[in-house]
Amino acid sequence: MKTISRTVMIAVALTLGGCNAYTLAPAGQPLVVASTFNATPKINWSRMQKDQTEVWTVDGPLLDKLTFLSGIKDGASLSPNNLGVFNQGPLTAEGNPPAFRKDMVSIEIAELVKETYTRKGYQEFNIANLQPDRLANNDGFRFDFTFMTKDGLDKEGLAVGTVIDNKLYLAIYTGAKEHYFAKYKDAVEQTLRELTFTKAKS
């Protein structure tokens, strides 16, 4: 039996070493997000990044959370998590989490997002307004959604994404329906509108 998980050890080590998991992303200051995008926050955010996943929050991820998932490959599953790690398991193996397939269209990607959340225990996941959109100057899609935590807290979300070179790029913003989602929505939309890739994609 594991007495302490690796994550805890890392966190404790961080504490002992005086490091913080979250750093400040000050308003108006351009930065590189998830090692992939150029972005400018419109308000102050707290950010945590690991390789090609990054999370922004103001009050805490349970209350408001902007996740960037970058370069998800064929066969990888989504993991909208703070320390996102892509599961490169085999495609469609029994019981494995659903995976992105390179020939997926937006409808299927929206399904994938829904399934990923449902598997993590979220309830009543409903998608609305799936429509074409652009992300980082590339054709893509967006949709809104609502869901509920296991304990019954209502939440809202929006997602914007694109597939380039058989890889999926997604930005997902979620927040508690009461007060929090609406509070930062405009700031999120502005930042997403201005996103660009650090390296040009075909």
């Binding site: 307004n129 799936l130 899609f141």
Partner: peptide, 14 residues
């Protein structure tokens, strides 16, 4: 349909 815009776009062009 929650995705009618996307479907419409698929029918017309993409």
């Amino acid at each position: 349909a929650p995705d009618h815009q996307m479907i419409q776009s698929m029918i017309s062009g993409n």
